[in-house]
Nucleic acid binder design. Structure first.
Lengths: 204, 204
DNA sequence: GTCTATAAAAAGATAGAC
DNA sequence: GTCTATCTTTTTATAGAC
């Protein structure tokens, strides 16, 4: 459709690709220029410095990566259905943009990473905790630590992607196999969360 | 005790620190030299190149990081107890060496990372899967996908540490608070695994 | 806006004296 | 073994012509 990609767009697309795969330190301006099929000078003409270009990429990716989960969450009735939705949405998203998790983790773990953390939708974590507490009062779910719960859900969704090379080696998988495994993982995690949150309650 | 740390040891200690925090690309030979309180020339005298020095650090850390969990696993009778042991051991280990997970993940995700994967104790994953299958036959545990199960356990233990800055921000935590949270996490995860593997079985 | 050429800075690696 | 000084390469950034 959009055959006509102007220079700025070409640079952003190339920069995104390079920064995602290599991280800030590993990324090379020359490689970005090559991929955008322009020369290095243009990078600085449009974005002044590597730092500034990186920040543009980070901001753009974060904005698109954490979509309107927030609003969607309100549409689902029970907490367990909200959790189902989250797992599906989150894993689907990472399958589409598999490099983002490690990219974000590296960025926030760097010495100057504090400023980037504030750009993440951290409020979502508190929102979900709040939803859980409401469900707990309604007797929908078992009592667990809400913060640990949210951390666990995010962990089980995101970690396999940052550990992908190890998992592929351990299971002798191709990339397609791996994505298939992650698709199947959705159902498995939804089962886990049911076990944790609702089933077996009477046994306690 | 060992006041006398020779040059090689000083270099290795400094290199470990720098590589862990900054990763290969972000690490600077000059910084390693400064921290070891020697000059850059010595780094090359002892280790020839940045690459060789990095490999030494990686090998050393991996060897110490995944300890004799394998043998310890045999000592525990039921599978659920083995899982308990794994969770405790793994989280305790990462609390002591919090930079290792991201360090390892970055290394194996790099273009030349394949060679490093083989140095990881991947066989442990298969071993645990095997232990699970044995427990399943004995009727000790519910039927789940063994591979997904192992991935989930490792995810829930390791991911919080690579996402530490985000978690600290979300919970408004100090480093001490965070470590406390991870200590408490051991018990929480052991509960989860009981819900997933054994309790509530009759309800299915 | 786009290019070539080049500067400037950073970083890895080595030479050679002691 | 250890140091200072220096080389070489890499990488970011800019100048200036078109």
């Amino acid at each position: 459709m959009e055959e006509t990609q102007n220079t700025e767009e070409k640079i952003l697309a190339a920069a995104e690709e390079v920064f995602m795969k290599a991280g800030y330190d590993g990324a090379r301006m020359q490689e970005i220029a090559n991929k955008a099929e322009i020369n290095k000078a243009m990078l600085h003409y449009y974005f002044r410095s590597k730092d500034k270009l990186f920040e543009k990429i980070f901001d753009g990716k974060v904005k698109h990566f954490f979509p309107e989960i927030s609003e969607e969450l309100d549409k689902n009735q029970t907490f367990i259905r909200k959790v189902d939705f989250m797992i599906d949405a989150y894993i689907s998203l990472i399958i589409r943009f598999p490099y983002i998790p490690l990219f974000v983790l590296n960025t926030v773990n760097k010495d100057n990473g504090a400023s980037f953390i504030t750009k993440l939708p951290i409020s979502l974590i508190k929102k979900i905790s709040g939803e859980y507490m409401a469900a707990l009062e309604k007797g929908e779910v078992r009592k667990v630590d809400p913060f640990q719960l949210v951390i666990s859900i995010l962990s089980m969704c995101a970690f396999p992607f940052v550990a992908r090379p190890i998992i592929m080696q351990a299971g002798n998988l191709t990339k397609a196999d791996f994505n298939q495994l992650m698709e199947e993982r959705k159902a498995e995690l939804k089962r886990y969360l049911r076990f944790i949150l609702v089933e077996g309650e009477s046994r306690i």
